[in-house]
């Protein structure tokens, strides 16, 4: 799990108690562990029933722990999954990018 970092906006919470921030980071690591592997299945097959929700949840949660780049990628992935005909090549690129960006959390 990466150290708490100074990042571009939105800035992570500072006034929350340290144990609350630790809890947020622990919960995010758990969310990455459960949701990212399901998204990685997109590299080999069609989107699963929870793909959009997984991308959406990671996109929202990444903001909370100060990972705006991962959040942007997850949201782009969510948008692509929501397209009438998702571009499989773009899906693969986004999944790989997201995997790289969240490497420290796995």
């Amino acid at each position: 799990m990466p150290d708490a970092q100074d990042v571009t906006s939105p800035r992570p919470p500072r006034t929350l108690p340290p144990e609350a921030i630790a809890g947020l980071r622990e919960a995010f690591a758990g969310e990455v562990a459960s949701r990212l592997p399901r998204l990685q299945e997109l590299l080999d097959g069609a989107p699963g029933p929870d793909s959009v929700r997984d991308a959406h949840a990671l996109g929202s949660s990444a903001v909370v722990v100060g990972e705006p780049d991962a959040s942007r990628t997850a949201r782009a992935l969510e948008a692509e999954l929501g397209a009438d005909v998702p571009d499989r090549e773009r899906l693969a690129v986004l999944v790989r990018t997201l995997t790289d960006q969240l490497q420290g959390w796995t």
Binding site: S9, P10, V63
Partner: peptide
């Protein structure tokens, strides 16, 4: 609205 990656405030302000 939940904060997005391009919002400019801190999460303390959202809270």
């Amino acid at each position: 609205a939940k904060p997005g990656p391009d919002d400019t405030g801190s999460l303390d302000e959202y809270a």
